[in-house]
Design a protein around this nucleic acid. Structure first.
Length: 225
DNA sequence: GTAACATCTTGACTTACGTCA
DNA sequence: GGTGACGTAAGTCAAGATGTT
């Protein structure tokens, strides 16, 4: 799965993706996976990719509104951003004391720290949602494809069942009596009943089961199959 | 090289809503 | 239960940075 390119941003995001490993960075707020999935960390801050900043910190720009000249937009310095990011990593919200202390340390107004955290939370969530959406689209596509393949397989097996009395075992490549084949009424998979010929007794389609999210698969396979 | 425009990032604001004393 | 203070999320605006032609 590739990642939406992000310029000059170090938003900290994780997305739950089955089968992907990740670094256990922080408590991911959104989208705890449904089925034993893991968090994919997309927030590797590119080493040395910190760009220079246009302006330094603003000590305290008094009252930007109310008829005065249009406010100059503050750009946080590299250090200020880093410190804010570190704080955010530890805590996604600040209590008034922490806010005050951080503002003091950064030489910013508490309000600015507060706004920064608000925006940071909002934009993390947005990116997270976008990535989850992207991932689900891909997953949907892949499931659709698998579904198509399996339906084709079912059609073939149905045709085999009505026509010839025997089939070839996919495992031993020997002729197999059709009577040894049974179809699961729930998933429509064809399985071979154990006659000693086929020790694995596997379904004819192991591909999907290995790719399904574990929770979904175990829920199904535990009962009828 | 640079000007003009498009797009992206991000600091700040407004509004609505929930919680708590 | 009504009320005000407070905090947060969501939506938005706009300055400034960056990319493209």
């Amino acid at each position: 799965m590739d990642v939406i390119p992000m310029r000059s941003s170090s938003l900290e995001l994780t997305i739950s993706v089955p089968g992907f490993t990740s670094s256990p960075s922080l408590p991911s707020s959104a989208g705890e996976g449904v089925c034993g999935v893991r968090d994919l960390d997309i927030n590797q801050v590119p080493l040395g990719a910190e760009e220079e900043w246009t302006t330094g910190s603003m000590e305290d720009e008094e009252e930007s509104g109310n008829g005065g000249p249009p406010r100059k937009k503050l750009r946080l310095s590299k250090d200020q951003s880093r410190l804010l990011e570190e704080s955010f990593r530890q805590n996604h919200t600040l209590n008034p004391k922490q806010k005050e202390a951080l503002a003091m340390q950064l030489k910013l107004r508490p309000r600015q720290v507060e706004v920064w955290f608000q925006n940071r939370r909002a934009r993390s969530k947005l990116k997270q949602t976008e990535m989850e959406c992207e991932y689900l689209k891909r997953w949907f596509g892949s499931l659709t494809e698998q579904n198509r393949r399996l339906q084709r397989e079912v059609e073939e097996l149905r045709a085999m069942k009505v026509a010839p009395p025997t089939v070839i075992s996919p495992h031993s490549c020997e002729p197999l009596p059709a009577s040894t084949l049974t179809m699961c009424p729930r998933c429509e998979r064809v399985t071979t009943t154990s006659l000693g010929k086929d020790p694995t007794n596997r379904t004819t389609s192991p591909t999907l089961s290995s790719k399904l999210p574990t929770a979904l698969h175990s829920r199904h396979s535990s009962a009828a199959c």
